[in-house]
């Protein structure tokens, strides 16, 4: 199964929004990496990842988000994350990724932060 189909891309005011519609365990995490790498290849600079429909995320997926956020910042852009369930916030906090990637309560607040 190709879970990239469950990662919907749209654009809001020049910012790419990825709406993830699947849990991010090991398999989907590698698809998330592919989607993010695709955006880097397209020279996209501003990305918001909406996790409102995600109930599980593992360290591979968190690592992919951290890696792309760092690469985007090198070119003046950024990746911001929004709408995390409590257990996802705990995973980001446990790894320490919440100090590396900006996390917002809603998609609107993430978009407004650019």
């Amino acid at each position: 199964m190709d879970s990239t189909k469950l990662m919907k891309l749209r654009e809001e005011s020049g910012i790419k929004v990825i709406e993830i519609q699947t849990d991010l365990s090991s398999y989907a995490a590698s698809d998330l990496r592919k989607v993010l790498e695709g955006l880097l290849a397209e020279k996209v600079e501003k990305v918001v990842v909406n996790l409102s429909q995600v109930s599980h995320i593992n360290s591979t997926a968190v690592g992919a988000l951290v890696g792309v956020a760092k690469r985007l910042r090198q070119s003046g852009g950024d990746l911001k994350i929004c709408s995390l369930a409590d257990n996802l916030t705990r995973t980001f906090n446990l790894i320490g990724a919440s100090s590396v990637v900006e996390i917002y309560e809603s998609e609107n607040s993430a978009l407004a932060a650019f």
């Binding site: 593992n58 360290s59 591979t60 968190v62 690592g63 992919a64 951290v66 890696g67 760092k70 995973t91 446990l94 790894i95 320490g96 990724a97 100090s99 590396v100």
Partner: peptide
């Protein structure tokens, strides 16, 4: 292990939780 690293968190998570 560092929050900046993309990998290497799995064992830490298992040990922590």
């Amino acid at each position: 292990r560092s929050p900046n690293n993309e990998r290497g968190h799995g064992i830490f998570i298992a040990k922590s939780l």
